[in-house]
Simulated scan of single mutants.
Amino acid sequence: MSLSTSVERVELPFEFPFTIARGTTTSAENVLVRIEDDEGRVGIGGAAPSPHYGETVDTVEAVLPDLLEIVEDVGDPHQLARIERRLQETVRRNPAARAAVSVALHDLVGKRLDLPLYRYWGLDPTESVRTSYTIGIDDTETMREKVETATSRGYEVLKVKLGTDRDEEIVRTIREAAPDATVRVDANEAWTPKEAVRTIERIAKYDVEFVEQPVPAEDPEGLRYVFEHSPLPVAADESIETAVDVTRVADRCDIAVLKLMKCGGLREARRIIETAHAHGLEVMCGCMYESNASIAAAAQLAPLLDYADLDSPLLLADDPFEGVPMPDGLLDLGAADRPGTGARRE
């Protein structure tokens, strides 16, 4: 067996400018990976690098030739453990670049076996979850309008970005605009521990489901303080990159948040899920600014999750890829039921 590979950079404009506590963006660049076997089957993956984790599209493109050389050298996409080990030996960081290769390999394996990944893993598609729809930081009235747009499209779970001097006002406005929605909030490390507890105490009365990453990842004791004093469940996102990190914060959060782009691929994602559940934590799979080239793979994990935040394709003005359908936010694995990840270029 032989494998050939290729790389392509794509720009993905957002439907609306997207703001979190760390800044605003109007589009994202992803790097696509294609791995083709000698029978013409093609596996697709995508890298959505984040400067927060030391990656850019330039660094991804710089390391991918070395990573894909390993894939071609091994020559067998089913050797997932062997390839993963060699990728990690070649680049210790660069998780988005490794994730793109991992997704493309899994997609190809599924296509070679004529199985969607969830069936390859033995998962039940009826045990799925709904993705949240993210409301970025904006002036309060614009955020209200975004909520009304989201709920009119059928999205029942909203994730609201916080980290401003008007966080309670924002949450109150969102609740007024969507009285029946499930509301989660994400501070993206913006608060100090005491500020986090004060803010959480003020917003808890608006029926908030949980609070994501209230303090900087570099402050694990601050996370513990918030966890011990918060009236709401606490989710750890930036504090967790790999399964090892789960063990470090398992006693100071309720929910572990994984992302393919920070953990380096689907095998590590499953290790995170298993480790978190073993420690009694719930699990959410989140995303960066990604297309369905990678989101479709993350969606295949849905039966193993307690929560999902895989709405990036929903926030794009146009996604060049189809993926797992998300009617009203439900990750409907059975509706696509295509081999591999389900990603397909439109």
Rank of each mutant, 00 (worst) to 15 (best):
S2Q: 11
S4D: 15
V7N: 11
E11S: 15
E15I: 09
F16C: 09
F16A: 06
I20E: 01
A21E: 02
T24I: 05
L32Q: 08
V33D: 01
D38M: 07
G40Y: 14
G45L: 10
S50K: 03
S50T: 11
S50P: 03
H52V: 15
T59K: 04
V63D: 00
P65Y: 01
P65C: 05
E72M: 14
G75D: 08
R82S: 12
R82L: 11
E89L: 13
A96V: 02
A97R: 01
S102R: 05
H106S: 13
L117R: 05
P125V: 08
T126V: 11
T126C: 15
T126M: 15
E127D: 15
V129N: 10
I137P: 13
I137V: 07
D138K: 00
T140G: 12
E145C: 08
T149G: 11
T151G: 04
G154L: 09
L158P: 00
V160I: 09
V160S: 02
E168Q: 06
P179W: 06
T182N: 14
R198N: 03
I200Q: 01
E201S: 10
D207G: 09
V208H: 08
E212A: 12
A217R: 12
E221K: 08
V226C: 00
H229G: 02
S230H: 02
V234W: 02
V234M: 03
E238M: 06
V246A: 01
D251I: 11
R252G: 00
K259C: 05
R267K: 11
R267E: 08
I272Y: 14
H279Q: 13
E282K: 03
Y289D: 11
E290P: 14
N292L: 10
S294H: 04
A298P: 06
A299P: 00
L310C: 09
D311M: 00
L316A: 01
A317T: 09
F321Y: 11
D328I: 05
G329K: 00
E346G: 13
